[in-house]
Simulated scan of single mutants.
Amino acid sequence: MKKYLILISCLSISACSIAKERPELEYQFPNCGISELNGKTINKVCATRDFIAPEPRKRKRDWLAFLAAEGSSGYKGPIDPTGGILEFKNKELDMQGHVWDFSKQGNPGLVLEGHDSTIKNGIILNANIVLGNLYSPPNFSKKNQSRNLNIEQYGFLYANNDYNCKRLGKKICEDSNLLENIFIKNLKTQADTLNLRSWGGGVLSSQLIIKNKFSINGSKADISNNKILSSATLNQYSHFPLIRFNQSKFIDNSQQIFPDANDDDTAIPSTLYLKFSPDTVIDGNTFTLTNKNDQAYAIVLDHSPRVRITNNTFNGFKVPILMDQWSSIVDEKGNEIKPQQFTGYGNVINPNKYAGEVTMNRKGEVVMAK
């Protein structure tokens, strides 16, 4: 019996020693000053190193596998975690040009949640970024929403955080902190998807290469001064026939974009997809399609009224905008813009200009794919 105990102890010590040698994502960031967000003073923390995620190891049929599976030999699940979750409250993370590269893990989820925080000045490669992570959109057919709230009683939450604390109790009030004001700024990233689920958040002055789409769910967001390149690749499991009608060569209209408003997947190839996000600002961006796709849109507005779309450049899109009957586009003063007036507000359309297949290297440079 003592021999077995010694063997198990040695194996455990060996496993711990190996684990320590493998790189880990930085979670504890040192303080490096103060910053300001929305007129509020917040602490500034700084990243100190690069992170290249290792390929997850697989368990083999050995003693370690036996111990990990609690006696079930043959267990072959991964040893190492993929992606990561970082929480920021009243903080600014300055990545100081460091790179987090998840290429060997195949676009895992990287969740950046919290409230009143900014993540800036870094390079994140091949991780599907989620900003916020708490909001759940309404479901029209079931008449409910997040935490089974009755939308007939409480109304649709949309991009309005006032419902927390006032009517729904302390626990939901505490949880709601995950919703507010998460921004990324001057970030360079390549991923399949980017998803903003933070009320009042935004993406500013960043370089994005998105394979599928950049989704905004239930946010009063600020999307400004970004360069966004996209192949607008469809989710292979999405099948929804879009019935649309043209009003101009700039904006397509549809009575309703998809029947189940709780469905995150859409059969509409797009670069930026807004759902339940009224009063969002989209200003000064360049949207570039990598290859010709006459069915792709730069921006889709789904149940998102009063969205300001000004001073943007659309490269490679035959018609840049699609919106449903519940959405609308306004100018800087909040006046509704008619489709034929769209380019009069600084928007430029170059329907035959494409980027070609591109990728991003560890320096954050956009280069042609091999």
Results as ranks from 00 to 15, higher is better:
Glu21Met: 13
Ile251Ala: 06
Ser146Leu: 08
Asn291Met: 09
Glu180Arg: 05
Leu93Ile: 15
Arg22Asp: 04
Ala159His: 00
Phe214His: 03
Arg22Leu: 06
Thr48Lys: 11
Pro259Leu: 13
Ser35His: 06
Asn195Arg: 09
Ile243Asn: 10
Pro23Val: 15
Phe240Ile: 09
Asn335Tyr: 10
Ile337Asp: 00
Thr290Asn: 05
Lys142Arg: 14
Tyr75Lys: 00
Val330Tyr: 01
Asn361Ala: 06
Ile123Leu: 07
Leu11Lys: 05
Thr313Gln: 07
Leu64Gln: 04
Phe102Gly: 03
Leu11Asp: 00
Ala68Asn: 04
Ile18Cys: 08
Ser17Cys: 10
Ile223Arg: 00
Asn225Lys: 11
Gly284Trp: 10
Lys171Cys: 06
Pro108Cys: 15
Leu322Arg: 01
Ala53Arg: 02
Gly109Glu: 09
Asn312Ser: 11
Phe245Tyr: 14
Val45Met: 03
Thr233Asn: 04
Asn90Phe: 12
Arg49Asn: 08
Leu208Lys: 01
Thr288Met: 05
Phe29Ser: 08
Pro23Asp: 15
Ile251Asp: 00
Gly218Ile: 04
Ile251Gly: 03
Glu152Gln: 10
His98Arg: 07
Gln96Pro: 02
Val358Asp: 00
Leu179Ala: 07
Glu357Cys: 08
Ser215Gln: 13
Ile18Arg: 09
Asn133Thr: 09
Leu25Glu: 02
Gly202Asn: 05
Thr359Val: 13
Asn335Gln: 10
Tyr237Asp: 11
Ile321Arg: 00
Ile119Thr: 15
Ala68Thr: 06
Thr288Asn: 03
Asp265Ser: 15
Lys120Val: 15
Leu5Ala: 13
Ser73Asp: 12
Tyr75Glu: 00
Lys89Cys: 02
Asn225Arg: 10
Thr48Asp: 06
Ala296Tyr: 08
Ile337Phe: 01
Trp63Phe: 13
Asp294Asn: 15
Gly84Asn: 07
Ser238Trp: 05
Val307Leu: 03
Gly356Ala: 12
Leu11Gly: 12
Pro54Gln: 10
Met323Leu: 14
Tyr237Phe: 13
Ser277Asp: 06
Arg244Thr: 15
Asp192Phe: 11
Ser248Asp: 06
Ser270Ala: 15
Gly202Glu: 01
Asp324Trp: 09
Ile337Ala: 10
Asp279Ala: 12
Gly346Glu: 02
Trp326Thr: 08
His115Val: 11
Leu11Met: 08
Gly334Tyr: 12
Glu332Asp: 14
Ser14Leu: 12
Lys188Val: 10
Gln28Ala: 14
Lys171Arg: 11
Lys213Arg: 13
Pro23Arg: 15
Gln145Asn: 14
Cys46Leu: 07
Pro305Glu: 12
Arg197Ile: 13
Tyr158Ile: 04
Asn133Ile: 06
Phe245Leu: 14
Lys120Pro: 07
Lys104Pro: 01
Pro81Ser: 14
Leu67Glu: 01
Pro138Gln: 06
Leu208His: 04
Thr48Ser: 11
Lys104Ala: 07
Tyr297Thr: 08
Lys58Phe: 05
Gly74Met: 04
Ile52Tyr: 06
Thr359Lys: 07
Gly346Gln: 01
Ala15His: 06
Pro259Arg: 14
Ser12Asp: 05
Lys143His: 13
Ile172His: 07
Ala65Ile: 00
Arg147Asp: 10
Lys166Pro: 01
Leu134Pro: 00
Gly74Glu: 06
Asp94Glu: 01
Leu187Pro: 02
Ile210Ser: 02
Leu289Val: 10
Lys188Trp: 02
Asn107His: 13
Lys338Arg: 12
Ser270Arg: 05
Thr310Ser: 10
Asn31Phe: 14
Ala232Ile: 03
Glu92Lys: 07
Phe276Glu: 05
